[in-house]
Amino acid sequence: MEKEIYKKVLNEKKIKRPIFLNAIKAFVVGGLICLIAQTILWLFKDLLHLEKTASTSLMYIVIVGVTAILTGLGIFDKIGQFSGAGTIIPITGFSNSMASSALESKSEGIILGIMTNMFKLAGAVIVAGVVSAFITGTIIYLFR
């Protein structure tokens, strides 16, 4: 009987997230990060005349590196709190998940801490990517 009352009150007093505001913040920050990355890409490809795949690789390396540094400085988590998916979805999220896991486990030493825990959060992305690439790739290969 009590359970019904608990459920009733919990259902009545649901928490409303600021969905619209969060979406706008994600859009603006996500878009801005992609704009900055596009500028870096343009820099390498059109200004320095590097080859397309090399430019793309360099762009990724720069973004990953800057994210790792911002994570280490304790700035990135504040940006992430503001923008949500705006920083999780770009490769910044991947880099931050690895840098923050590694940094947090520092107290357990280099091997058992940093090295062992680096992929704690990023593992899901890599496994999902490889498994889906395998399945989709096989399908594309068979129907080519």
Binding site: I15, N22, F76, A85, G93, N96
Partner: peptide, 17 residues
């Protein structure tokens, strides 16, 4: 935070709850 949820420098968004 590091035991129950995420590393302290992780950029995930904590909800208002």
């Amino acid at each position: 935070e590091r035991q129950f949820r995420y590393p302290t420098e992780y950029g995930g968004q904590k909800p208002n709850s």
